[in-house]
Design a protein around this nucleic acid. Structure first.
Lengths: 205, 205, 205, 205
DNA sequence: GATGAATGAGGGTTCATTCAT
DNA sequence: GATGAATGAACCCTCATTCAT
């Protein structure tokens, strides 16, 4: 369902064989683990290869550069969120705005929890990776999902409201995750408050 | 008004001569400029010294390490925000909750605009700098300012609401700044919507 | 025969390919040559790599730090002496005390001559390297060899006498080597005088 | 009584005024203390000036270079030993060889104890300082004192024996000091054994 | 004379990337 | 395809020395 462009800096070699697929996955998983536990500082190709259990040479057969790995991670993460949100939106066709928003919220929070600690780091990585167009498209994709939902319920300024809601929720979720180890339910309740309150304010205005 | 601890990683040498003060400022300004224009990737001591128009050796007379410069910038930025918010809060003693919040909002936005592009980077830098305690205190300080205000107007759960509001607004402001070059007024209007909507939702609950 | 602990600061990577073994040897030989000809002042990693005909990066693949190279040299030197002395002691089982001592003396002098000029420098290096335990064990090992021999011939205070004899002989040999280019025989004769004289004095006491 | 040449690398400025004398002493004492407690690694001009309570600029008014300070320390140390030994020798004119040697030994040990930990470091420093001639003269001076004494009692090969005795005793004393905190008496007893034994062996031969 | 700010060459170490085996 | 040894530019930091005030 995601329609992100996949051309620049994509994996050097399409893994057609099972073994190759396994190698690429090992590299990406090792990368994620390093990002989670040690951050960008220890995110270096030798270390990644080591953790992945392959040689650096092999790593470079599948990824043309270190940044390409980061880019692939970002794409996967975005892809997952994008798909999950689109799914949730599709399944919320008959619900009220609040109910539909809640579903999207749950999906978003679950997604963030499945990439623990990595969110902020990948967000920062975006700033130096050549992903401008892709990032723009991704944000539009997300915004469109929300914006379409809002428009369906005649919320004014749907597009801007969608963008701002995403920014605010992102800030809230990242913020909570960065401080306490809150569980999904708690985060949901707090995010729900924010979302409902904001949307109501916009509608009543 | 800010009472942040200033001990670890503080400047190596307190500048006694006027010349030294100038040098330290040049280093900090060069650092800020580099962070703004080129990010952490080009934030290296040789480059900083170069841009500042001093030698590396001089840089190291005033800062014990590269990280110490980042830390000093973070402290200055925090200190400024902390002080400005405390001032604004003090001057809002006789206003309504909404008016008081608006004042704090304006101060916050003005502050962010005065450190363009640097917010996200310094936020990320926090993750690898030894600032846990200091960051905790700073966040508490901010939270306390908002929380006190909310409590005064009998908003329930003042502390948690304050924290979440800060997270959300931070996400919103950073988000807007990262995409468009919005002006202070536009950001204010959008942030105001969020803040009022959220707070109203909490009150009515 | 030497049983020195080999854990801290050991080579970073165990050379698996023949090529790697060659590289490590080149680095250690270059290091020794530099210590001999230019001393600790010119003992820097870039220079070592240069002389060894490898890049600095390669050097750091096998040694985690500059000091680790020094430590490895010290270990090799000690190991050689330790082994040679143990051998000589074993082969001197049926000899008189004087004859056995002479054998040990010859081995020691030959050993020093095979590491020309490096003795004093490595001795000094010990003072700033984290080798306390290892040094202690090495000294005990040497002392034990002599001490056991002395005890066998009922020399009183064998342990202390062994230690003092080692100190004195070390001073003598280093001293002679530092001034004239004496040959092994000449050094032997002079050291023999000292050793026999000292031991006789102890026995007659 | 010492007649060491004092020309190369001597203090830049003869301290004629009391204040200057005080400054030079402060620098030399700070240097000694640093050498004792932290070794050559922390022996740097900024640190020395700091500990001495003067500015680096001032330090360079009295010493043309860092090495000049080391050289001056070596000269002072040598001068003290030289003078003390000459005194002791002069006062031992009517004693037996053993008694005279004991006196020299006591003086030597006392001297070493008054420069704790610094002996080995300064010995090493000699290796890279331009002191060849001076060192040669100093060693000759010491050797002459012993050698003259030995010759007076018809010890054969007085010169070589003197040299070797000095080497051996130096090794012994440094060795003992480096391992245990032995007191002067204990060191004396052990050194005496060595000296007497060695000399007796030479005489009887 | 004294001060201490400034200099910059030098040296330790890392890590993305290449390439012979 | 895979390996891992090798490379070297780049970066952090120190410290002997100078010089304006």
């Amino acid at each position: 369902m995601s329609s992100l462009a996949k051309q620049p800096a994509s994996p050097r070699k399409r893994p057609r064989q099972a073994r190759a697929r396994v190698t690429v996955d090992a590299i990406l998983q090792a990368s994620t683990r390093i990002l989670q536990k040690q951050g960008l500082e220890k995110f270096n190709t030798n270390h990644i290869a080591d953790v992945a259990g392959v040689s650096v040479g092999t790593l470079y057969q599948y990824f043309p550069s270190k940044d390409a790995i980061l880019i692939e991670l970002i794409r996967q993460k975005r892809s997952q969120l994008s798909d999950a949100l689109a799914d949730a939106a599709a399944q919320s066709a008959d619900l009220t705005l609040e109910q539909a928003l809640d579903n999207l919220l749950r999906v978003t929070i679950a997604h963030q929890l499945s990439w623990p600690m990595v969110g902020r780091t990948l967000d920062y990585a975006e700033s130096f990776l050549p992903l401008a167009d892709e990032s723009f498209n991704f944000k539009r994709e997300l915004t469109d999902i929300i914006s379409t939902l809002l428009a369906k319920f005649s919320v004014p300024n749907a597009d801007m409201v969608a963008r701002d809601l995403i920014f605010a929720l992102n800030g809230l979720i990242e913020g909570i995750l960065a401080t306490h180890n809150a569980d999904a339910d708690q985060i949901f309740t707090r995010a729900q408050f924010l979302a409902h309150g904001y949307i109501n304010a916009v509608r009543e205005n």
